[in-house]
Amino acid sequence: MFVPPPPNTPVAMTAIAVGATLVLVLFVLARALGARREGGSHDAATAGVVAGMGTGLLVVTLVALPIVMIYVGTNHHLATSKSTEFCMSCHVMEDYGTSMMVDDLSYVPAAHYQNRWVPRDEACYTCHTTYAMFGDVQAKISGVKHLLVNAFGTVPETLELYRPYSNRECLHCHGGARSFAENEFHVDDIEALVSDEVSCSECHDLYHEVTELDGMDLWQETRP
């Protein structure tokens, strides 16, 4: 079974900031409830809070800090959603994770994952995002679609890409690399490769072959 590495997203500082803000807001809430109980009205509650902590701190607590926490949380979750662990948390993706552990480097995902050609904690995202201006946004929209289908729809037996895989995504890393540039097949077809007339997958044609996983040997990582 494939065990994805944990996401490389620091959580401690974000959690401390959110926790501290929560304490401040709970303090406001406690004062408001206390003052209301004593004064018997919402006006008394408001007056009690304003008198207790000052208007500046109150506005910071109820306006500025929540906005900052939404921003901080958005950044954190966008970073986390790129992680291999995030993708593998859906049951339907388990076989695709296992296919990266196949003990045969002619399989493209296995070669990339096992040789660390892609960061292991962001393996799926690195190959399956679009390296264009709105690639990240497109990836997030696709992710939300997957979430909805997983929760409310029927997951298809065979998963397919939304559009043919563009060579641009391969050339983002391999273009200009010596091993790529000195390969005679690449040199002969470079223009066709750049313009997507010829797909990289015409030669490198073994990917996530999840239907063939049964009986295949899996790579056992050994650390020195």
Partner: peptide, 29 residues
């Protein structure tokens, strides 16, 4: 008069949910 009470309740609930969500990496979080 009512805004402080309601807004602090809503913000406290939001912050508590955000705090929980930070410790997981999955579509539910």
């Amino acid at each position: 008069p009512r805004s402080i009470l309601w807004s602090s309740v809503l913000i406290a609930v939001g912050l508590a949910l955000e705090l929980v969500s930070l410790f997981f990496a999955n579509p539910v979080s």
